[in-house]
C-alpha cells in the first residue's frame, strides 16, 4: 500500500528580506491528514514559512505546492484556513457579526452559514458568548474566536500560527481534541509552536532554527535518534548545542 499522498510540498524555498536571509533552502513534504508541527524559537522563520503556504507571501527562490498546485493561487486559498499570530478580529462587532462577515467571504450564506457558526462556536466553547462584542472578550476568548473563524469554511488544509498561546491547559486540551477530530475527518493541520510539550502531540515535527530546517520526524524518532528523553533535549542536540 502506498503511503498517504503529500498534501503540501515545499521545494528549496528561500526567503530574503533585504540582506537578512529568513528561510534557507527549506524542503519539506507534509502528508494528507496529519498534524504537522513546526517547532522553533521565535524569529526562526516559522511565520514566514506558513504565510507562504497561506498565499500571503512568496519565496525569493523555490516553490510551494499545495494539493499538487503551485501557491499562491486564489483557487487554493479557498481550501486553506489560516489563523495568524495576531487575532485579527473586529472589536467593534460582536462575535456573531465577525463570523457572519468572514463566512460570507467564503460564500457561506443562509442556513448553512448559521449552522457552521453554531458548530465552530461549540467547538471552541464560546456558544454562550456569541452576541458579545469582541472588544469585551478576554485574550483567550479572542484566540478561540480567531480559531473558530479559520474553521468556518471547513478547509482541507488548516494553518495555525501559535494557536494555543494564552489559552489555559484545560482549554488547550479540548482544542487539541478538536484538532484530532479534524484530522480524523481528513484535514491536514500545520501548527507552529515554541512550546515543547505541545510539539509532542503532533504526528510529525519539523524543527526550525535560524531559517534552516534542522530535523524532521515523529516526536519518538527525534527523541530516539538523539538519545533524548524530551523533545527539548532533542532540539538542543540538533541545534548543535
Amino acid at each position: 500500500m502506498e503511503a498517504t499522498k503529500a498534501c503540501i510540498s515545499i521545494r528549496h524555498v528561500s526567503k530574503q528580506f533585504g540582506k537578512q536571509q529568513v528561510l534557507k533552502k527549506i524542503s519539506l513534504e507534509i502528508m494528507e491528514g496529519e498534524i504537522f508541527g513546526l517547532l522553533g524559537p521565535s524569529g526562526a522563520g516559522k511565520t514566514t514559512l506558513v504565510k507562504q503556504l497561506a498565499g500571503l507571501d512568496t519565496p525569493t527562490s523555490g516553490e510551494n505546492f499545495l494539493l499538487q498546485e503551485k501557491m499562491p493561487s486564489l483557487k487554493l486559498i479557498e481550501k486553506v484556513g489560516y489563523m495568524a499570530q495576531s487575532d485579527a478580529l473586529y472589536g467593534e462587532l460582536s462575535a456573531k457579526e465577525n463570523l457572519q462577515f468572514f463566512s460570507a467571504l467564503y460564500g457561506l450564506k443562509g442556513k448553512k452559514q448559521q449552522q457552521r457558526i453554531e458548530e465552530v462556536m461549540k467547538l471552541v466553547q464560546l456558544s454562550d458568548h456569541l452576541h458579545k462584542l469582541v472588544s469585551n472578550y478576554s485574550g483567550g476568548m479572542k484566540r478561540r474566536l480567531s480559531l473558530a473563524i479559520a474553521l468556518l469554511h471547513e478547509p482541507e488544509i488548516l494553518i495555525l500560527d501559535e494557536p494555543t498561546v494564552g489559552i489555559d491547559p484545560m482549554l488547550r486540551k479540548s482544542i487539541w481534541e478538536a484538532f484530532y477530530e479534524l484530522k480524523n475527518k481528513g484535514t491536514t493541520l500545520i501548527v507552529t509552536t515554541h512550546v515543547m510539550d505541545e510539539a509532542e502531540k503532533c504526528d510529525r515535527l519539523g524543527m526550525i532554527r535560524n531559517g534552516s530546517l534542522i530535523a524532521v520526524g515523529t516526536p519518538e524518532e527525534l527523541k530516539q535518534k538523539t538519545n533524548s528523553a524530551t523533545i527539548e533535549e532533542a532540539f538542543l542536540v540538533y541545534g548543535g548545542a
Partner: peptide, 14 residues
C-alpha cells in the same frame, strides 16, 4: 495594523 487585512487576504476576497 491589527492584522485583519492579512486575514482578509487569506480568504478568497479579491
Amino acid at each position: 495594523t491589527t492584522g485583519t487585512l492579512e486575514r482578509l487576504l487569506s480568504t478568497p476576497l479579491r
